[in-house]
Structures are given as C-alpha cells and as structure tokens.
Design a protein around this nucleic acid. Structure first.
Length: 419
RNA sequence: GGAGGGCUCGCAUAGCGGCCGAGUGCACCGGUCUUGAAAACCGGCAUACGAAAGUAUCGUGGGUUCAAAUCCCACGCCCUCCGCCA
C-alpha cells in the first residue's frame, strides 16, 4: 500500500510510476477523488457522533419529562448517526480499494520499459566452451539417478518430480551451505509455516494479480505459500520493532508451491518450472533510509552464492514493467544454462521499501514518530534451478558431474558418478 | 471430533449499561534527594486520523440500546480435559 499522504502531495510522481509500469494511471484520480469523498463522509459522521455523545450524556443526568424529551431527540439523532456511519464505512472501503490497486512507486534508477528492457549490470564468469555435446539436466539427472520426472508425472502430474539419490543429497548440501553462510552473515535461520491464513497472504500482496498462482485450501481457508517471503514478512505483522534492532535479517527455508497457471507449454521439460520446490530466502526488515544499501547487500550475498557454485551468471536490473507491485526495484541473477544457450533466472531480490510493511502494519519507533519499516527479500538458493545450473555447467563428457569446492564438505565427494 | 475456561493500555490484574480511553501493581522514562547507586518522593507513560475541537479502538465482526469493555449472536485465537494421531 502506498502512503496516502505521499499520493496527495506527489500525484505526478505516482502517475509517472504507474505509467512506467504499464499500469492504470487513471486509478490515481479515482483514488484521490475517493479519498476526498471519504474525508467528507468521515467528517459528517464524526460531527454527528460528537453531538450524539454529548446528548447521551445529558440523558444520563436528566429526569422525568425532560428525560423523555431528550430521549426522543436522541432517537432521531441515533438514526442519523447510523446512516452516516454506514456511508462512512462504504466510502472508506471504496477509497481503500482504489489505493490498494496502486503499485509501489518505482525507484528512479530502475530502467523504464517492458520485460525485455532490462539492463545488464554485470557479467560474471564466462559460459564454458564444451569440447563435447553437453547433455541437459534431464538426461544428466537420469544418468546420475538424481532426478525422476517421469515418475513425478505419474504420481503428481505435470511439473512434478522426484529428487533421488545424489539429487536429494545435493539439495541437502545446497540448503546446508546456504543456511550456514547466511547464519554466519548474521541472518536468523527460520523454518516458517508454509500454510498461512488470508491476512498473511493479503498483507504480502499475493492475493492481487498474483492470486491465480497460489494454491488455496478452501475448506480451511488457508493458502500454500509460493515463497517463504510470505511467512517471513508476516512474522512481524502488527508489531512495532525496536529501532536499534534494525536491520533484522532472516533466512527462511521452506517448500514453495506454485500453480504455474497460464504457463502451459513453457519450460515443460525438466525441473526449471515446477509446482513444488524448496528454497532458502533472505528477508530483511530495515530502516527506510537504509533500504537501498540493504538491497545491494542482499544482491551481494546472492552473488557470493553463485560464485561459490562456480557458475557463470549475469546480474540484471529488472525493467519497470516487469516489477512486482510491491517492489520499487528488482535485481535478478541469471545463470548460464549451456543446453539452452541462454541465461535463466535463478535468484531475485526486491526492495519493497515501506510498501509491504504498511499493509502488514510493521513499524518502528523513530525519535518523533512511529513509522513503517522497509522490507526486502532475496533468494539465496532455489533448489531445482540451482541443480539444473550445477549439473549442466559442471558436467563431464561421460555424464559425471564435478561438485563445486564449496559443496564438497557437505557431500563428502568431488564428483557425482553414474548409477 | 467432544466438553469446559479465557481473551482489557509492555507484563499482571480491576472494571455496577451512563461519572470508563479505562483504576491498581510491576516495568519503563524524566526529576528531587544522594559522592554514586538503591530506596523514598514528584511527574510522565496506548494507538490511528486531525491544525485543533473531536472521532475511533477493551480478540474480530454483527446485534440490542438514546448510550456497550459491560447485554445478545457468530467467528478467531489461547488454555485444560477426553478421543484420535506423526
């Protein structure tokens, strides 16, 4: 949710932001108008209510006929108050509905444009030159006994898979390495709930346009999270955090569930796009003035991870049109996938400034006031995509795969052998 | 799944339908006193919107009433017991 005061004072900035995102600009006039109507309705209600409170008090002390007369006028006033109250509630809901539709104001430094208008910030490492025909991760996964997509489909449908043998071990190694390094960097490791209530989902902004990609368990009205960002952000919902404790950083390990609606035919082979996967996610609550720096720190931790995995990648500054509604800037890291001959997104970090915290009502006390904190998130490792990158980039001609040095202690070997 | 009990300002509690946005204790902050501290004493201590007046908030939502923390209904959460269970 954007700051209504900011909107009132800087409608042009918000308008420009909406436009850059390719989103509805007219919503701003509607929101401002509805806000005016809301204020009038609120004022009318409050005036009547004040009158009623006053009158009610005099009823208490009055006696006899005087009391009867007062009661009479109090009754008619009560009806008016009720009417005004209904109207106020209505106007408030309308105004809020408009305001909630407005996305976060983009960072002026974010590139303007559509999905393809991202800016490459840097390239790290060089795509490997193979002196043999590289196999894709599906084939390698079979040879190593690591990935079984056929049985995944048999048992759970498309976009499902089994990680077996070294595939399962590789997940444990990746998670261990990720959590261990995050812990060293000062993150509190967290295993959050993956089944959350509507308030958590709504507050983190996943019930808007993103709703169709979320699994909902109707009978119990709970949701399966698509990322641990949801339970991590909602962890401090309705709390006032101690200013001196900021930034508060958490590394959450959880399963993520995604319906992948509307992606038929996209990445159907392998485990690039799946309904269920595990992920270690970084989440930070920080002072709004620190958000930009914190965002770069999250990006650096992501790069450290990719570097440790010895995988060539590039960092892109995501264009305005491709930002999530809560983010004001987003950096993606894309790993080189040899058999696709392209860079594919493996991690992503977003600066949500105070946008998300305002919805979730997460604040801190400043000298002069209680204000919303800034929230930021970033992927440390999303398992399937990292497995794809490792298998494909570190494969040998015979189908064996070399293990990055950083993971060797967790796996007790330097190479995955054929089964 | 069944049976009970509870949800009030950081914590613990008080609260007759009007004098309750709400008392008390603890904690916390400021001051007096003290070489310093403790104790004692004095004062301050919920949040949001608003320039202010004011309005709203006693788990949440509805209802009764001129008037609800207080009465009624529904839901949520917590606790205890029984059943089931990794």
């Amino acid at each position: 949710m954007i700051d209504i005061k900011f909107l009132r004072e800087n409608p042009d900035v918000v308008r420009a932001s909406q436009k850059a995102r390719g989103e509805d600009v007219s919503i701003i006039e509607k929101a401002l108008a509805a806000d005016e109507v809301r204020k009038v309705a609120l004022d009318q209600f409050e005036t009547l209510r004040a009158e009623q409170n006053l009158l009610s008090k005099s009823v208490a002390t009055a006696k006899g006929e005087e009391k009867a007369a007062l009661l009479d006028s109090a009754k008619t006033l009560a009806a008016k108050v009720k009417e005004a109250d209904v109207k106020r509630t209505q106007c408030e809901a309308e105004a809020k509905a408009f305001i909630m539709q407005i996305s976060n104001v983009i960072d002026p430094q974010a590139p303007i444009g559509k999905e393809e208008d991202f800016v490459v910030i840097e390239n790290v490492g060089k795509p490997r030159a193979f002196d043999f025909e590289p196999k894709d991760h599906v084939e390698l996964g079979k040879l190593l006994g690591a990935i079984d997509t056929e049985r995944g489909a048999k048992v759970a449908g498309s976009r499902s898979y089994y990680l077996t043998g070294v595939g399962a071990m590789l997940e444990f190694a990746l998670v261990n390495y990720a959590i261990t390094s995050a812990n060293k960097a000062g993150f509190t490791p967290v295993i959050p709930p993956v089944l959350v209530n509507p308030a958590a989902m709504e507050g983190t902004g996943f019930l808007g346009q993103a709703a169709e990609n979320v699994y909902h368990l109707e009978k119990d009205d709970v949701y399966l999270v698509g990322t641990s960002e949801v339970p991590l952000a909602a962890m401090h919902m309705d709390e006032i955090l101690a200013a001196e404790k900021l930034p508060m950083r958490y590394a959450g390990y959880s399963t993520c569930f995604r319906r992948e609606a509307g992606t038929y035919g996209k990445d159907t082979r392998g485990i690039i796009r799946v309904h269920q996967f595990d992920k270690v996610e970084m989440f930070s609550f920080c002072h709004p003035d620190q958000a930009k720096e914190e965002h770069l720190r999250l990006l650096q931790w992501e790069k450290d991870f990719l570097n440790a995995m010895e995988i060539p990648y590039r960092v892109i500054d995501v264009a305005s049109g491709d930002l999530g509604s809560s983010a004001n800037r987003k950096f993606d890291i894309e790993a080189w996938i040899p058999t696709q001959d392209v860079y594919r997104e493996v991690t992503s970090t977003s600066n949500c400034t105070e946008f998300q915290a305002r919805r979730l009502n997460i604040r801190f006390k400043d000298k002069d006031a209680t204000k919303a904190v800034a929230t930021l998130n970033g992927t440390l490792v999303a398992i399937p995509r990292m497995i794809v990158a490792i298998l494909e980039n570190h494969q040998n001609a015979d189908g064996t795969v070399n293990i990055p040095v950083a993971l060797q202690p967790f796996l007790g070997t330097k190479r995955f052998e054929l089964v």
